Computed example of a mutant assay.
Amino acid sequence: MSTIPVYIPKDRLQDYVVTPAPSAEQMDRYHVVQLEESLLENLGPDHVFDPEQSTFVTGVFRLANRQRAAIETALATALRAGMPYTLPDGNEDVIQTRPDEDEANLLGLAIEARDRRAAGDTDASMALRARSNTVYSLTPEQMIALTDAAKAFKQGLLAKSWQLKDAITAAEAAGDREAIQAVVWEASASAA
Rank of each mutant, 00 (worst) to 15 (best):
L43G: 11
A149G: 15
T55C: 13
E72G: 00
N133T: 13
E186N: 03
A81L: 11
K160N: 11
P9V: 06
Q34P: 01
K154G: 06
L39K: 14
A159T: 04
L158D: 15
Y136W: 14
A119Y: 09
A187P: 03
A187R: 07
S161G: 08
E41Q: 15
L35A: 09
N133P: 07
G82S: 11
A76T: 13
D100N: 12
Q155A: 12
D176C: 03
G156L: 07
A152H: 11
W185T: 05
D93H: 06
N105M: 10
Q181E: 01
T169G: 03
A145E: 01
V6S: 04
D50K: 02
A171S: 09
E41Y: 09
T122V: 02
E37Y: 08
P88N: 07
V18M: 02
L128D: 11
I8T: 02
E92D: 14
T122F: 05
R131N: 05
G175F: 01
N133F: 03
D123Q: 10
R177L: 14
D11W: 12
S38G: 11
R68W: 09
R29T: 00
E172I: 13
V94P: 02
K151H: 15
Q53F: 01
L157G: 10
A104F: 07
V32M: 09
T58C: 01
A191G: 00
I111M: 14
P99H: 00
E92W: 05
A69N: 14
L87I: 05
W185A: 07
P99F: 09
L63M: 05
D50E: 01
T169H: 12
D89N: 14
A74V: 08
P99A: 06
Q53K: 11
V32C: 04
L128G: 02
T169L: 07
I71H: 08
T58Y: 05
